[in-house]
Amino acid sequence: MNSIFRNPYALAAVGLIALIPLRPSLATTARWQPEEIDQTTREQLNSSAFVTILGEVRASAADLMWVKTELYLHNGVQFKGHLNVDELTHTGAVAARHEHEEHHHDGAHEDDDDDDCTRAGTLIPEASKDYRGFIGTLQRNVQPWQDAKAPHVHAPGDELLPWYRMLTYSNPHHWRGYIIGTWWLARNPSALTQSEDFINEGVRNNPDVFQLHLMRGRVLIQRQAWTDALNAFRRAAALAEKIRPAEGKVCTTWSASDEEDYAAALRYIPLIELRKLNDPAAARKSIAAGLQRLPDDTPLKNLQSELR
């Protein structure tokens, strides 16, 4: 026995054996918030300063990937900055930098994208505007470039999908990534299940973003799940109403694009009730409720006249 206490290795072994019963009792030391608080509060509370800093890095990585998707969309041709950075910073709205026109980059606004990019011009200038002469010609030949007058061509969305996957892994609160990723997936009829999974994930990570519910409803329409789609649009409209300012006036927290999406949600509800669920009474009620909020909405008025 005495020799054990004189042998350091034996003493170390005794120490290791003593650790085995001790370790399980320490399992709860890392948790100090009460169990009843919700996940969001828990995340806000239990985030060390380093985690916060790394979280910012992660979000920035997602933003860089978002920019990358535009490069892929245009087959590698780099266009000059055409987004309203001020608006993006203050409201998060992805709007084009035009003083009196609203152009938005969403899955549902692809045509606007053509206009914005073409107007902005390519980063490598065309020959007539390039003072560099031979060097400019060389750059236009070795780098992806297209003449501003050439038809605006977009790459197939398949190439963008990995970026949307990666950026939403990097920042699960990047809801625009979920929306546009779903939009590209839903264009392919064989990937409808994947698009539904993707948008469901987005809704799970951002339950209060009404645009995600709207997109989910659109995917469910494609899957002909009418009741679920109806519920998704109702949820989208209800969430939008919580943040929509009076009469839907554009402000720092509500963009024209948000108003457009809100109107779309209100229009889908009576359309499904009337055309797919054969419930004109419910459709009438929904139209009336919709017109109460958007009195000048032409599609809703047309639907009302159709029902008379």
């Binding site: 170390a12 120490g15 290791l16 001790l22 370790r23 709860t28």
Partner: peptide, 21 residues
């Protein structure tokens, strides 16, 4: 728990010190 954590730290220190010795 505090005591268990202190014991945990002291035992690990002891183990490494003995291995080093």
């Amino acid at each position: 728990v505090l005591l268990a954590l202190m014991v945990y730290a002291l035992v690990w220190t002891f183990v490494f010190a003995m291995l080093a010795a």
